[in-house]
């Protein structure tokens, strides 16, 4: 019996080498452990053995069976591996570059805008908007700008023809329609439509009749802020701007308020910034934005009682801030859309 079993295991071992597919595996399995398999036949022969022989032979058969099972298990792994390899194809070289395009990127002005808005949101300012084509009333009159103010001049401001009618900025009377010169017009819309107290910040596109050069652009972007409440003070203005500047330019940035003049704020200031982290513009005062307390006349023009309500307002140039943050020296880069520029800020 023993030699017969040993031969059986040796034959199976030899035969197993040729098994490569699942079908061959099944056939092989049938030949050895199937109903008519070689091992099954031997096991059937057990019945003819004597009581004394059985344990000895049984042990031998179990050993042979164990060997066969090991062969089958190894074959199953081999066949599965072959199947997986066939399903997956050749191995991947992980060092090859991905053929897919990388993610795109936001425009540096958008990134800067979102960064600025995020810092004002922390102070409870929410984003407001308004039309880019505005009535002269919203852009100038309601902001206490004298009728003969140079900013209204055809030389400096872009106007639409008399026949032009805007669906978004209908005329109040027969005033001109123009391309807004500042986002301050959103202040007016906010005061007319919202119930104070409120705090808004309004990013948007503005236009001036300027020839394009390194620092001028026919359109540019501003971020306007307005806080209307009871008892808004100069200290509040300083607090808000100080927070914004430290958020945007780092904790070691400092500000100063330099008296200035705007028709819609009183007192009015230019806010200067000084920071050690601005490359060649480090450690000197840089003019960043105009700001002030809302002129009582403006509150009145926008339907708010200046004895009850007060406010602060500010407006900054988005391009200017982006140029400072990133060390960009020419405003035209923002509008050229050369991807070698755009992708630097991803």
């Amino acid at each position: 019996m023993q030699p017969q079993l040993a031969q059986l295991v040796a034959a199976a071992t030899q035969e197993a080498v040729a098994v490569a597919t699942r079908a061959e595996l099944e056939a092989f399995k049938a030949r050895v452990v199937g109903p008519n398999g070689s091992l099954t036949q031997v096991m059937k022969g057990m019945a003819t053995l004597s009581k004394e022989e059985r344990p000895v032979v049984g042990k031998l058969i179990n050993e042979a069976k164990k060997s066969i099972e090991e062969i089958l298990a190894a074959l199953l792994v081999k066949v599965e591996n072959a199947e997986i390899a066939a399903a997956l194809g050749a191995a991947v070289d992980p060092t090859l570059p991905s053929p897919d395009a990388p993610a795109g990127s936001l425009h540096p002005l958008s990134r800067t805008r979102e960064r600025i808005l995020a810092s004002f949101r922390k102070l409870g300012f929410v984003v407001a908007d308004g039309p880019e084509v505005e009535t002269e009333w919203h852009c100038f009159d309601a902001l206490n700008t004298p009728a003969d103010h140079p900013a209204r001049d055809m030389q400096d401001t872009l106007y639409m023809p008399k026949a032009f009618r805007s669906a978004d900025a209908p005329r109040k009377a027969d005033e001109a329609i123009l391309l807004r010169t500042h986002t301050s017009s959103v202040q007016v819309r906010a005061m007319l439509s919202r119930q104070p107290p409120f705090r808004i910040v309004a990013p948007g596109r503005c236009f001036r009749r300027d020839a394009v050069d390194a620092t001028h652009s026919a359109n540019f972007h501003q971020v306007e802020g307005l806080w209307i409440d009871r008892h808004v003070t100069l200290a509040d203005l300083r607090g808000v701007l100080d927070f914004f500047v430290k958020e945007t330019f780092g904790a070691d940035a400092e500000i100063r308020l330099r008296p200035s003049f705007f028709p819609f704020t009183e007192p009015s200031f230019e806010m200067d910034l000084r920071s050690p982290n601005l490359g060649r513009l480090s450690n000197r005062w840089l003019e960043i934005m105009g700001c002030g307390l809302v002129d009582p006349k403006v509150l009145e023009l926008c339907g708010l009682d200046p004895d009850e309500w007060s406010g602060l307002a500010f407006g900054l140039g988005l391009e200017r801030i982006a140029m400072l943050i990133h060390g960009i020296d020419d405003i035209r880069h923002f509008y050229n859309n050369d991807t070698r520029f755009l992708r630097q800020f991803a």
């Binding site: 949101r121 102070l123 409870g124 929410v126 984003v127 407001a128 908007d129 107290p197 409120f198 705090r199 003070t233 100069l234 200290a235 509040d236 203005l237 300083r238 607090g239 808000v240 100080d242 927070f243 100063r256 308020l257 330099r258 008296p259 200031f269």
Partner: peptide, 19 residues
């Protein structure tokens, strides 16, 4: 203007949302 200190901390106004 340097003699005016930065003002009080402010809390958001409830109910206001971005445009």
């Amino acid at each position: 203007t340097d003699k005016v200190p930065a003002g009080r901390p402010i809390a958001p106004l409830p109910g206001d949302e971005d445009a």
